[in-house]
Design a protein around this nucleic acid. Sequence first.
RNA 1: GGCGCUAUCGUCUAGGGGUUAGGACGGAAGAUUCUCAAUCUUCAAACCCGGGUUCGAUUCCCGGUAGCGCUACCA
Length: 569
Amino acid sequence: MSQPSNSAIPRVRFAPSPTGFLHVGSARTFIFNWLYSRRNHGTMILRLDDTDVERNTDASVQSIFEGLKWLGLGWDEEYKQSERLELHRKIAWSIFNKGLAYRDFTPAHTSDSEKSGPTKFDPKDLRVDTFISPGSVAVRITHLPSGTVVVSKDEKSESKNREQALLMLREQLNEGGRGTWLFNPGMPELSREESDRRAAAGEPFALRFRVPRSTVVRFTDAVYGEQMKAGADIEDFALLRSDGMPTYHLASCADDADLRISHIIRGQDHLTNTFKHVLIFGAAGYAPPQFAHLPLLVAPDGTKLSKRRHGPVVSVTTYRDAGFLPQAFINFLCLLGWSPKDDRTKMSQEELINAFSLEGINRANAVVNFKEIAPGDGFREKVAVAAGIPWPPEETFDPKAVWLNAEHIRGLAIEGLSERLLPIVREQFPNATPEKMLRVTPLIRERIKLLRDVLTAADFFFLDQLPPYAPAELIPQKGDAAMALKVLQKAQELLPNVEFKHDPLDYALRAAAQELGVKAGQMFQPIRVAVCGRKNAPPLFETLEVLGKETTLRRLGLAVEKMGQVASR
RNA sequence: GGCGCUAUCGUCUAGGGGUUAGGACGGAAGAUUCUCAAUCUUCAAACCCGGGUUCGAUUCCCGGUAGCGCUACCA
């Protein structure tokens, strides 16, 4: 029997199953594993848990790699479960040979509870009614052939109620509501001879773990502490499916044992599964590794994150595409369910590594505080995208994530930020040069929260022609059209002779304001609008300096024209 | 239904038998400023409920409630 490699270097793994895109919860699990391995000079392993052939997709594998690549954290070893099936089977049969597992010839349930609904019932046999109940939508299902009626109204959502109702119906219909399922009758007791005979005859079977009913299974979780569960409460779970494929539990444990994983850091949804895993490790002759379960990430409504219900905010690539810095995203995720126990929030990768410990992990679920995009908002999306408005809107992200991102952006050197901004700008303005970008960046660094904001914050630097704006925009505070015109004309008159540098511009325009008898702000505002096309923009002199004399004068001319038309009316 | 886990401002959290229960985001107000940001200052905002233990519980114990998870030949 091997020992958990406490003394050796820690080995941790991230083991996603490629059944969907990489979502934020998985990303956080990856990050915590990574931090633990780096903190303790251990090994980070990526293992694709792809034993569910039915649901695995290449697209999902792509999405996971894409997301992980963006995070930029990396790993040391990589495995695919589907390439290690022999190992899994070998371990399963070794457990069988010790008498700790048995063949179950009961036909498989026909996929009981798929998301789309029950397949066990013929839809024609069911009448489903919904009605409003306090806080949610209640569901009543009538099973026509038997006349059985069930109502679920206590769940939070219609879908949950529907699920619950189906469950209740099934229980009422199945031999008058049996208790908790532990094993299929007759199967654990099958003699070895009969079992072998039926198997040899080609009868399909699943291999099930023989859970010892009289024992108590224990383990110590690094986050949740001492855990114990009576064997009488653990069902005889499957190890091998009737097609010979290993189940998740078996494959996962077999690989964790074989890969000498020392610490399993994963979502809390596996906490109760861990009792089964401890059983498998023991039966296979291995000491179980150290477990550490992470609190779940949930949506503002308390339910677990799902793309269907909560939209694109649960997918890692959405954050990437909206212009989050990976470092900021990582920082944000770390603060969900973990705390450095001091008052730091903005943390660099180094700081995170140094501060990370399993002790800092919290036990309660953490809400990702995004605003839901209602599923029916496909229309809104289309409108927004067509109008060039960024999608999804900023409010759909957790405000703390956005703030943290702005904070990391501000912490970036001009050169570094400029390099990240340029490709985004170039998508819309192919002519943008690195030199220009470098000059624009300092003017917007404090003004953008997401990288994509560069497009709205700095558009006028790259645009040939300003989008149309209302002439009234040109009128300064406590001023009128005449004042705007006066100011613009004055600027037009003196700017050709001014050097386009901050100080000379400052001096010249302030002097002009005094000369005209207007306040500095009243002088600057019309010029700003003339040149930027809007009131809110970076400081004027720096902006003019970057824009250059030619563009400035051209835009001033256009503004004078515009103002002139208004004034003459 | 069974089993398990959890419960501090709206959100993320610190704390812990005696505290004005701390920080951050978000919100409000103000300062600064050529606008917008950034920055700074200030304010509002929380210990789920009920018992017990105790001189004293938000903190420890029990119960309740609520939420979540697992209860598949999914992972």
